[in-house]
C-alpha cells in the first residue's frame, strides 16, 4: 500500500520545527510502524537527506524507548500497544498519517521525534525506590505477601516509563507514571517504612519538573500501553492525604 506521512521535523531543541510531507510506496502490512519509518529513512539517506530521528530500542514493547503521537494519539490507534508494536495493517492504502513527538514542557524535543524524558528519572530519584542497600537481605520467604497485593503491585510495576500518559494528558500531567510507582512500592510490605515520605517527595519533584496537575480526565489510561489504571492516581491522592495527616 501507499502512505502519505506528515512528520514533525525539527533540527534541534532551539530551532523551530514544522510538519513535512513524505510519500512511502509499497508498504507491506506486515511491517511495524517503525519499520515503515526505517524504510523511509533508507530512502532519505540514499537521496542525501537527513533521515528522521526517532527513538526505539527493544521493538517489542518493553523498554519504553519508543513513542510517537500518531494521528493525534499517543502510541497511535490500538489498545495496550507501544508504537513499536503497531503494525501497518492498522492503516489503509492511501492514508495520510500524522506523526509528532510527545509534547509537554518538561519533554524538550531534542531532534525531530526524539524527546528528553530525564524528568522521569528525577521523579524516581526523589523517592521511587525502597532503601535496601546490597548486603545480606532477609531470607526472601520471610516476608510473605498476600497474593492479591503481590499481583496488584505487579500490575502497577509494569509501567515502562514511556511517557505516553503525559503526551496524552490534556493537562500535561505525569500523574499516572508517578502513581504507578507509588502503588507498586506502596502495596508491598517492604515499601511501608518510606511510604509517606516517598509520595510527598515524588509529587514535589513532579511539580518542580513542570508537569501539570491531574484533573481525572483519563486520557492517560487510554493511551497507556501497559493498561495502568487511573484508580492508582486516586490511590496516590489517598497516600498524599494520609502522609499529610501523619506528618510529624
Amino acid at each position: 500500500m501507499n502512505i502519505t506521512l506528515r512528520v514533525w521535523r525539527q533540527p534541534d531543541s532551539d530551532a523551530p520545527g514544522k510538519m513535512h510531507t513524505y510519500q512511502v510506496a509499497d508498504v507491506s502490512e506486515d511491517m511495524s510502524f517503525l519499520e515503515m519509518l526505517d524504510v523511509l529513512n533508507e530512502q532519505l539517506t540514499i537521496d542525501g537527506e537527513d533521515p528522521i530521528a526517532f527513538d526505539s530500542d527493544c521493538r517489542e514493547g518493553i523498554c519504553g524507548m519508543c513513542g510517537l503521537v500518531i494521528n493525534g494519539l499517543a502510541h497511535g490507534p490500538g489498545k495496550n500497544v507501544t508504537t513499536c508494536q503497531l503494525h501497518m495493517r492498522s492503516f489503509a492504502d492511501g492514508d495520510v498519517i500524522d506523526v509528532e513527538p510527545w509534547r509537554a514542557e518538561p519533554f524538550t524535543v531534542i531532534k525531530d521525534l526524539v524527546v528528553d524524558r530525564s524528568s522521569f528519572d528525577r521523579i524516581i530519584q526523589a523517592g521511587g525506590y525502597i532503601t535496601a542497600p546490597t548486603g545480606t537481605a532477609p531470607e526472601a520467604n520471610s516476608i510473605p505477601v498476600n497474593k492479591a497485593d503481590a499481583d496488584a503491585a505487579f500490575d502497577a510495576a509494569t509501567c515502562i516509563g514511556c511517557g505516553a500518559c503525559v503526551a496524552a494528558c490534556p493537562n500535561g500531567s505525569a500523574s499516572l507514571f508517578m502513581a504507578a510507582k507509588v502503588a507498586h512500592l506502596g502495596l508491598l510490605p517492604q515499601g511501608q517504612p518510606e511510604r509517606h515520605s516517598r509520595v510527598l517527595d515524588m509529587v514535589d519533584q513532579h511539580d518542580a519538573e513542570g508537569f501539570g496537575g491531574c484533573t481525572q480526565i483519563g486520557e492517560c489510561t487510554a493511551a497507556c500501553p501497559k493498561g495502568i489504571q487511573i484508580d492508582l492516581i486516586s490511590r496516590m491522592d489517598r497516600d498524599v492525604l494520609s502522609a499529610i495527616a501523619h506528618r510529624k
Partner: peptide, 22 residues
C-alpha cells in the same frame, strides 16, 4: 540464593503462591 533475597528486599514483585510465599 542471595540474589533473590536482595531483589525481594528491593520490592521486586515476583510471582507468589496463595500462601504469600514465592
Amino acid at each position: 540464593v542471595e540474589i533473590i533475597d536482595q531483589c525481594v528486599a528491593q520490592g521486586v514483585p515476583f510471582a507468589r503462591e496463595y500462601g504469600g510465599l514465592l
